[in-house]
Each structure stands twice: as C-alpha cells, then as structure tokens.
Design a binder for these strands. Structure first.
Lengths: 334, 334
DNA sequence: ATATAGCGCTAAATCGATTTTGCAAAAACG
DNA sequence: CGTTTTTGCAAAATCGATTTAGCGCTATAT
C-alpha cells in the first residue's frame, strides 16, 4: 500500500502538494498544471488510494453510515438493507450494520462504538430506550433518520408507512366484500405504529357504522412463544366467530393462518383474511393471502435522501417526517 | 468527548503515562499504583473512551470484522449474521456488513474500502471472482474464513455443511421409506457445494443399486425468473413421474412445492419430498416438508473461532477446512 | 573506581492524511 | 532600481492515540 508520503518522496515534492492535487484543489492552490498532471498520473499508476483511517482522523468523517436495527431476521429488514446499501453506494458510502438484539444495554455501547469510529450518519429502526442517545447524536452533528417507527416526543426525522391508512384500506376492503363481523389481531407492543393500526381499525369500523367493541380486538403478547400465540389466536377466533379478521403484522398473519387451519376453517368461505405487511408465505399459501404491502423501497430511498440532506451531501429535504401509503395487494383470501 | 491529551493535562501527567495505565501496562511500565488509580478513576468519571480512529491509525487494527455476502436476503444469511454478530461481540468486535450484489466489479472496490478502513478480518460467503483478492488479503495478514462454500484451489479456511452426506441422508431416507424412482432437482451453478450435493445423490443411488440416469436430474437455471423455474420443474416432474424428489436448495424446494401443487399431486401419497436446507415455509406447509437442515449456528461459531485463531486472539484452530454434518428433520412429506 | 541496572516518569516519533502558515523567487509596479 | 504582489511550492501543525528512547539520579555489581 503506497502512501501519500511515498508519492511525495518519489516525485520530489511535498506531501501538501500531492494532497492538494489529489483532492482537486490544484486551481485553488495555484499548482502548476504540468506538475499536477504528473502527480495525478503517478497516483493512478501506483494504484494509490488514501488511507481512510487517516482521512477520518483528520477530517472527522468516515464515509460510513450506521444501520441500527433490533434484529436482522425478517424480510422487512432484508429488503430494507438491500435498498439502503444500493442507495448509499451511489454517494460512495458504506453501511455498517449493527443489531441491538432487543437488548437495551447494548444500545449504548453500540452507538458509542459507532460514534468513536466517526460514523457520519445513522439510519435507525427505533426500539425502546434509544431515544436519548439518538438525540445526543444529532446534537453532535451526526444526523439520524428513523424508519418503520418514530419517537413522538422528538423531532427526529422519520419515514414510515402510513399505518392508519393502510389498516383502514384493509378493513374497507373487507367491508366492501360484505364482511360484517370483523376481528382485529394485534400485539401488545406499546409502539406508535401498532397504536396507529389499531386506531385505523376502530375508526374505520365506526365510520362505517359497524359494530366494534373490546371483543373485536385480540392483543397477543409480543414475546410469546409461537405455539402459545397460535393457540391464543385460535381460541379467540373460536369464541368470537368473526366472518373476517385482519392481522396487524405479518408474523401474526402467519401464526393466524396456522390457527385457522387448526380450527378447520376454510379461507375465504368461512373467514376472510387480510394482513398488514406482506410475507413471502402469503403468495404461496392456498389461498393466497391479501395483504397491505409496505413500500419498503420507497421508505429506504427517502430515508437515505433525507439523511444525505442533513449531511449536506444533497439538497436538504424539507419534509422530514413522512408517512408513505402502503399498497393493498388483493389476493384470494377475501 | 474528552481525549487522552485532556486527561493528561488535567492530571498534570504525560500522555504516555495515561495511555500506559489505561492499556493495562502499569505493571510493565512500573507506574506508581496510586497514580495509576488516580488516572483510572479520572478516566472512568470523565467517561473517557479512546477514539477508535486514532487507535486504528496507530495500531493498524480496527476491531471490525467484515462480513461479505452476495445478497443479504434469505433466511440462511439472516441466521448466520445473527450468530456471527453475537459471537464477535464476545470478543469486542463489531461487524461491518457488505453485500456484493452478485456484481463482480463491486467486489474489488468493496474489499479495498474495507482494507483501507483497517478491517481486521473477513468472513466471506464466496462468490465467483473474489478468489484472488481474498488470497491477497491473507497475504497481508488480514485473515479470511469462508462459509457455505469454498475455493478448491486455495488453502483459505472454510466451514460449511457436508453437502455430500447431507444429500445422501435425504436420499437414504427416501429409499428407506420405499421410494424407488427418485428425482433430483438442482440448479446450474458451477459452485462446489452444488456439485457435492449432486454427487451425494448419484453415488447414494448407485450404492443402493437403484436406477439413476441423466433423466433423474433436473438442473434449472439459477438466475431464472420464479414462474419459469416453477414451470420447468412441473414439466420435468410430469414427464418423469417419480415417486419421490429431492430439491437441492431451499428456494428450489419452495418453487417445487408450487409446481407439485400445480400438478394437483398430493404429498406424500403421490410424491415424497425432501429438501436440502430448511425453510420457514417447510414447517408451515401442509404437509410439513422433511428437510436437511444446515447447522447454521455451528458454522458461524466455528468460522468466528477459526478467524479469531488466525488473528491471534484465541488459540489457533488446527482443523481449518471443516465440513459439519447437517441434520435430517423428519416431517410429513415422505 | 567504573560500569550497570533500576526507578518513575516524560519527550518525541509515529501512523497517514489535511490544512494553515511561511518563504523564496518571479513578476509587476512606480 | 527598489519595493510590493503574486506565484508555486514546502514546512509544520494537527487529528488522538501508541510506543520507543531517554532523563538524571541512586544503588549495586565488577
């Protein structure tokens, strides 16, 4: 690995001159064009690439973006990460991926490590307990953009699907199909997005003048073991006997399908099904399951764009707290 | 962010003393215990953490491991990444994840970027075209460990499932269940692992004195569009009419299930099914699909261990090219 | 009597870049 | 011709750490 020092020595000039030329400041520094050319040519031929660590130490920038999620598994994340990486590459940035594994204590360590590596900006799927640290980051001029969820009390930029309208679209679809006794299965996470989906369900039902009460909603524990969740859904459905059900998350939909299978019911004749957030399985299942698909790519793209705006790499995006419409994919389950 | 310089100034000692103490070299450098304590206490109280970029520039180490894959989607990768991150955390290392997106030209750039960030070691799911660069890395004392596949011509360490034995186990399971006309569906990738699975099929069939010929194997194009692959599998099965089929990859299994559904055949009465590599869907499908599960966690753990050995962090692992047995998960499809 | 080793710490070199300042020589000016 | 400006580059400071060499003195060994 050749360094700038060696180039300078080989050409008999100072490292300052080499640095200036290679950073395109030859005009500004009035470097002789012939000399500049010679330096550029030599750098190219010798395969010189600046040591990023040294650059980072001096400039405080790293050309690295931290992507923080609680868990890497899951199609949502996979698709998100792919798009983000693709987008960031356009700007010459690399992704440093970290998962916090639902572990609050790890969050602090993690963010500190990234900060000490001069990570320039952060894309974050928020989890409880990181609010403060993320605000701290922004105040230290390390922009943060949230995805998938947000903190209601902060002004941190975010991009996510419109949970309210998405759920409403699903419910309206069921109503239009003639369902009258609609149930809603969600989990007990106290995050904003779940509350919004719930609100979408309740308000849509009310404004359609349909019956909706406490027993229209099942909130299963989030961290529950799979079998348990399936059983609780089955028990709920058996008691409630709805003619349609909407699941508020894709994993709930998957479990729900198993519950329905266990009950021996047939979709859509015995029960109509819609799920918020799509899942690979829904395309393969018999019958295929109607779902509200999250615009994952749009979310990722916009998040990157906002981040780049904050970092001064791109034109600043003024609308910093954005909800994007999801798309109802009509299949065979209604 | 307080720096070592500020600590030294505040305590009226030299930077070197602070550095020695905080790096646990107080004994070696015979630093006065009282002074050492004072320094440690002050560092703790002031929340000092060394700037990793500066450390990296000086030492040439970064405490970062690069995880290079071609594509982040897919359950295999997700599970792998999770375990790797967990293991590396034990050693105080962070993962820098990068995907090459099946793009040969990106590989070079990517590896160079990582190298310039002083990435200490590499965990790689190999793809064509990275052979040379990875060898280059090892010769520059940046250890590389491969997972999932390997390069037959290099001595790079690797950890992967025993493809031959795994396939053989699946085929034997079918034979034991009474199947006589067994088909094998693989893809046309010219990577070692697929060749091994194929060999596992053919040799097991032969040694069981069962008929096996050209028409026992379907090699579908890898990059094919989903619908096309499904159709080609369906056409093949319809013509061949086997009483059992083994799919050589989980995505082939998923497509295969669709093909079988399209043919209107019932599993396992019309056709027995085994798949190499498990998939979430296989547990949910009716009937559940028997599969040879890759020991993903074991692979990840061992790969990390070998890497740490090469980096001198742990005792060197002598067995550097390892194949781990997969596990046949008996379900309802045979 | 001289050489060596130990003490506890500091000064300075170093990693590889960027950036500010400085300084001759050449050019322009009066 | 003497002075100021401009030109074109070099020297040095800087980022924040690690690490080697050495300071000046005393105690022990040769």
């Amino acid at each position: 690995m050749i360094s700038i020092k060696e180039i300078a020595a080989k050409l008999g000039v100072s490292i300052a001159t080499v640095s200036s030329v290679l950073n395109g400041k030859e005009k500004e520094r009035r470097i002789n064009a012939a000399l500049a050319d010679k330096i550029k040519r030599f750098a190219l031929e010798s395969g010189y690439h600046p040591n990023q660590v040294a650059v980072s130490l001096r400039t405080g920038k790293s050309r690295i973006i931290g992507l923080i999620v609680d868990n890497i598994s899951g199609a949502f994340f996979a698709s998100l990460a792919n798009t983000i990486e693709k987008e960031l590459e356009k700007y010459g940035y690399t992704v440093l991926y970290c998962s916090t594994g639902n572990n609050e204590s790890k969050v602090e360590t993690l963010i500190r490590i990234l900060f000490q590596h001069n990570v320039d900006g952060y894309l974050v799927i928020p989890a409880a307990g990181m609010e403060e640290q993320l605000s701290e980051l922004t105040s230290r001029k390390r922009p943060v953009v949230l995805m998938d969820s947000y903190f209601p009390d902060t002004k941190l930029p975010y991009v996510l699907v419109n949970n309210y309208e998405g759920t409403a679209a699903g419910i309206k679809h069921l109503i239009k199909a003639g369902c009258r006794n609609i149930a809603f299965v969600c989990n007990d996470i106290s995050l904003v997005q779940m509350a919004e989906r719930r609100r979408g369900f309740v308000e849509t039902m009310i404004s359609a003048k349909m019956q909706v009460g406490e027993d229209s909603i099942l909130a299963t524990p989030y961290m529950g073991e799979k079998g348990q969740v399936v059983r609780s859904i089955a028990a709920y459905l058996k008691k409630k006997r709805p003619d349609a059900v909407m699941f508020a998350a894709n994993y709930l939909g998957v479990y729900g399908l198993e519950a329905i299978k266990k009950l021996g019911w047939t979709i859509p004749s015995d029960i109509g099904v819609v799920c918020f957030d799509d899942h690979e399985l829904f395309q393969i299942n018999t019958p295929e399951i109607t779902a509200v698909k999250q615009p994952v790519e749009d979310i990722a793209q916009l998040a990157v764009k906002i981040l780049m705006g904050e970092m001064g790499i791109e034109k600043k995006v003024t609308e910093q707290q954005v909800e994007i419409m999801g798309k109802l994919i009509r299949r065979k389950s209604v």
